[in-house]
Design a protein around this nucleic acid. Sequence first.
DNA 1: CCTAAATGATACCAAACGGTATTGTATGCT
DNA 2: AGCATACAATACCGTTTGGTATCATTTAGG
Lengths: 194, 194
Amino acid sequence: MPRPSRRNDLIETAQTLFNAEGFHAVGIERILSEGNLAKMTLYRHFPSKDALILGVLEAREKAVNGWFREVLADPNLQGKGRLLAIFDALEAWFEDRSPLGKFSGCLFVRASGEFPHPTDPVHIAAADAKQAFIDMVAAAAELERFKKPRLLARQITLLKEGAIALAQIQGASKPAQDAKNAAERLLADWPRKK
Amino acid sequence: MPRPSRRNDLIETAQTLFNAEGFHAVGIERILSEGNLAKMTLYRHFPSKDALILGVLEAREKAVNGWFREVLADPNLQGKGRLLAIFDALEAWFEDRSPLGKFSGCLFVRASGEFPHPTDPVHIAAADAKQAFIDMVAAAAELERFKKPRLLARQITLLKEGAIALAQIQGASKPAQDAKNAAERLLADWPRKK
DNA sequence: CCTAAATGATACCAAACGGTATTGTATGCT
DNA sequence: AGCATACAATACCGTTTGGTATCATTTAGG
């Protein structure tokens, strides 16, 4: 893929607008005018609005999971601290101090809410992105020699998703602290291998 | 309010459709035809579609929080069991064995996702409903003499919201069990009064 | 320099959107 | 019986929707 500059503009602009106002609430003309793009440019790169949404989710997956991957890979971390770092990152996200742009909830959860049918490609893409996050946390838990790393990863993710939902609905960052505190209690007596 | 039969039909039909497909995805004509209602009937009871959405959220708040209130008030429960009952109810909800109809995520969270602006009346109504739930759990925690009942309530709610988000996005009920397991660990060494 | 592809700018389309107006018919209270 | 209200049915309004067609202009590569 040589120079996907326009295609990138489309995804970038759409991502910003979808994030700020929602998928159905934003028409393609808004995206085109905001991004100074022509209509035919959109339809040469994507067959439909839904396909553009899929492209946005794909880009978002790389951005979000990529960021958390960096957080989890910090060489200064070890043990519980590695998993707890997730919640410091969350707080930064909620307070708009992250590379993910203005916080407006999780785009994947919102996508699955606006496209509720389980067989909808948009819904599936969102589910895949979320599963990738869980797998990432499980790998980190395994690395730190926690027992039952997958169960731990799912529970950590529960706290993370709860914090995102509450932060979105009440426009506050405190849920990140509450979640970190709960995760600390969870990890306090979680068994390790060897 | 004497006989709000048509008004009730409007809210009931709209609630079902919004729950199944989302707020922006459902037009008023869908609601009217599905509920065998005339257009002017809608606009005699509500000044706008947004007002209807507010009516739906109000009704939903009574249904959802009312149900959880019953769950928490069960006289057979005591101590940790009273709070853990939330997660059994969650699992029933996810598996469509609840009085709340087919599970499709939390309508309040989805509303706040489709109406992201914090000053939007719809967003505010959703936030109020969620806060009412937290207060309810805090009251139950206080009743059972847990220390820091409000912090405990927020953390229980984190797990609950996380479970809802994951159950919605992956179409599974297992997050309810994971959340209950995590809540058990949380409650295991949570201090009590006296 | 020349050609071919990518783009911008418009005009256009049928359908659906939220909302209003009109008219005729039930319905229920006094 | 009389009368106001609630309702269904329908036509209509202007706007916006996602998507297509046309054509001139820019851009990049050989």
